[in-house]
Computed example of a mutant assay.
Amino acid sequence: MTDWKAFTVEIADHVAQVTLTGPGKGNAMGPDFWRELPLIFAELDADDEVRAVVLTGAGEHFSYGLDLPAMSPLFGPLLGDKALAAPRTAFLRDIRRLQAAVTAVADSVKPVIAAVSGWCIGGGLDLIAAADIRLASADALFSLREAKVAIVADIGSLHRLPGIIGEGHLRELAYTGKDIDAARAERIGLVNDVYPDRDAVLAAAHELAREIAANPPLVVQGVKDVLDQPKAGRVADGLRYVSTWNAAFLPSEDITEAIQAVFEKRPPAFRGK
């Protein structure tokens, strides 16, 4: 397969392992991530030797989420008082491009198992919400943190997680931006099982992937297609709505303050403006 900048891809025994590698700290999601993710899953979908996919992160963490410094050019035209129709339209296209990258995981014809260790923040949670099955190590921590940086989460968590963890748990995570550990993630159904460490969760994910791969591949793909059908339209409609909402309402003094606070490494002071 292609040499990737933000991933490695290894295939053995009908199982592909897709590993986030950065280059940002904590496998943060920069421009290469968003460009390469849909291309990788298109290649895997076209490869008849691949029957299941394990999705994981290199090193200590799954992902810190969106690489704000690297992706700041997306937000730049919306900051200040000049966010007119043209920059908002460009921003809408950018949101939908990022949404489509994660949707490529959800729409993959091959079952995807996420193996999570360490931090899984923001965009990382969007990504694992698009997987079919999630497993975690005991040190995993999860956070739907967009509210803390003055953003309505718009890449899929708000639309895919209701069917995984339920409305009440989702609203708590989305309104507060709080962190939860692997034990709570298991209790609310975000992950199926928790394992002692990164090696153990990765081994368990591969064992499960091989078990899936041992079944007739077209039947497994058919099962996934049937299970996905009832929610596909709802998720697509929700993604279009939130992208339009953010293109209209995301520009604010609060998001400027949030981005400045990230760069200055200080707590933000939000004013609701």
Score class of each variant (00 low, 15 high):
D3I: 13
A6V: 03
F7K: 00
T8C: 04
E10T: 11
E10D: 11
I11G: 05
D13G: 07
D13N: 12
H14K: 11
H14P: 05
L20W: 06
L20A: 13
T21A: 13
G22L: 05
P23K: 04
G24I: 02
K25Q: 15
A28T: 11
P31R: 10
D32C: 00
P38S: 04
P38W: 00
A42G: 06
E43I: 01
A46S: 05
D48Q: 14
V50P: 02
R51N: 06
A58F: 09
A58T: 04
H61D: 15
F62I: 06
L66P: 02
D67S: 13
D67E: 11
L68W: 06
G76E: 14
G80H: 05
A85T: 11
T89F: 13
T89N: 12
L92S: 08
L92D: 12
L92T: 05
R93N: 09
I95P: 06
R96N: 09
R96H: 05
L98F: 10
Q99L: 03
Q99N: 04
A101C: 00
A104W: 00
A106I: 02
A106S: 13
S108V: 00
A115I: 05
S117K: 10
G118H: 00
G118A: 01
W119K: 15
G123E: 06
G123C: 09
G124T: 07
D126C: 06
L127A: 10
A131Y: 02
I133H: 14
I133P: 09
R134Y: 02
L141W: 08
L141Q: 14
F142Y: 11
S143N: 08
E146S: 10
V149E: 07
V152G: 02
A153Y: 09
S157A: 15
L158W: 10
G163F: 10
I164W: 03
I164L: 12
G166P: 07
L173R: 07
Y175S: 11
G177R: 10
I180H: 03
R184A: 01
R187L: 15
L190I: 07
V191Q: 05
D193E: 15
Y195P: 07
D197T: 01
D197P: 01
A205S: 08
H206E: 12
E207V: 08
L208A: 12
A209M: 07
R210L: 13
E211N: 10
A213I: 02
P216T: 07
P217Q: 10
L218Q: 15
V220P: 01
Q221C: 12
G222R: 03
V223T: 15
K224F: 01
K224Q: 08
K224M: 12
D225G: 14
D225Y: 13
V226I: 13
D228T: 10
D228P: 01
D228N: 13
K231Q: 15
V235H: 12
V235W: 12
Y241P: 00
V242T: 14
V242K: 08
A247H: 09
F249K: 13
L250Y: 05
E253C: 04
A261G: 04
E264F: 00
K265E: 15
R266Y: 04
R271E: 12
